[in-house]
Design a protein around this nucleic acid. Structure first.
Lengths: 220, 220
DNA sequence: CCCGAAATTTTGAACCATCAAAATCATGAT
DNA sequence: ATCATGATTTTGATGGTTCAAAATTTCGGG
């Protein structure tokens, strides 16, 4: 049985390289994301390599092996199903479920996860629009434009948000920019660092480039 | 923040001495219950004593201090609310929820526990009839007769079962002896080691003394 | 009152996850 | 090509939890 620390490292590596399974994730990135000292990551990664969960290239980085990827995907599945469960069934706020799921993902049994999945009707995405790996650990990766890169003047729907922080999510809630909302990007001003949006109903609002880049959309 | 190991020790000590707050729980009892070596318990208990959670009397045993009791009661509250939640909301079998709750009790946040409590309508007992401590850690202790000590010929209702093992609980389920069931103890035979019961509806069945002593009843 | 069995404590060791700080390596700019 | 800078690895150490086995204590019966 992998420890919860091992699960955290694998999950993080998966998140950092999910677009490209061949990519090497540098140590520093993991160190920052998990908030541990760089040397700790080196030590841990060596142990993961010894267990055959990652392949480690000194001074370059790590990538998941098939079995590491499998395990990581299951952790991610648990995390995302739990988040959705907490929102849909427990009525919790979407801005608080990430932290909660961070703990619960290491404690729930396989049976309980499958029960949640069933109760939720086998959903494909979590409250932030992230895909939920299926029971075999398979997860579709969809690349979408953000508010910074999508067409101007087209009606788009918010599909996913790329920042799980409480503050960011609460902002989106107040501005009615949760996944599912539709809107149009009216204009972008590089100098002013603003993206102007028109929401369903006509209300205008604007975001800075950094915030806009964390909201991903699909054609409405 | 106490570690989950600390929570396990405190909870176990509370369970072993819940009738008498003055009682000293011997090391061996904890060692057996938690399935760790005796020396490990000694070491851990010393650490708990240093944290002011228990008072330790070498070669005699430990008892909870007020703050230890407080903490233990909160762990027990989480455990029992989770068990009930898993049965009532998740539709899990009562024979499998104990193990699940054993993990979850260390992972759920205060907020989530209170949310479960609310959804369940502030229940007073868990699926096995054990009392659920309130949000302040206060738990009523009711002493009840067992099938071995209650009056013969009286209609009684199963109020609590004192064995959480899967096998025992599945047996009770098959025999319709879950908490809430009513029955009459017809006779006891010391030599044959049998307790004969008549269930609601008239069906007769018998149990051995050891099993009978783990089923507690109240007047129906 | 002493003695042996049972319980408890001590000792020495291991594993996991972590840190700070020193040493090493890699890379891009000159 | 070299060299400074930043990333990575190494080193030495700590805290928490655990074990096995040896030493000690307790306590009831002779």
């Amino acid at each position: 049985m992998p420890t919860s620390t091992v699960e955290d490292y694998l999950k993080q590596i998966l998140l950092e390289q999910q677009n490209d399974p061949e990519a090497l994730v540098p140590m520093g990135q993991i160190s920052t994301a998990l908030n541990v000292a760089p040397g700790t990551v080196t030590a841990m990664v060596k142990a993961l390599a010894d267990s055959g969960l990652v392949s480690y290239e000194p001074y370059s980085g790590v990538r998941l092996t098939p079995s590491g990827r499998q395990l990581a995907a299951h952790v991610l599945r648990r995390h995302r199903l739990i988040e959705l469960f907490l929102v849909k069934v427990m009525g919790m706020d979407w801005s608080e479920v990430h932290i909660e799921a961070e703990e619960l993902e290491h404690a729930v049994s396989e049976r309980l996860v499958e029960r949640m999945d069933e109760m939720l009707g086998y959903p494909s995405t979590d409250p932030h629009g992230d895909p939920i790996p299926d029971a075999h650990g398979v997860m579709p990766v969809t690349v979408r434009p953000s508010l910074l890169t999508c067409e101007l003047g087209e009606r788009v729907r918010v599909a996913r948000v790329g920042d799980q922080s409480r503050e960011f999510l609460q902002l989106l809630e107040r501005r009615h920019l949760k996944p599912g909302s539709t809107l149009i990007v009216e204009r972008r001003d590089e100098v002013a660092d603003t993206v102007d949006l028109r929401r369903e109903g006509g209300a205008e609002l604007s975001l800075g480039f950094r915030a806009a880049s964390k909201i991903f959309v699909e054609p409405a």
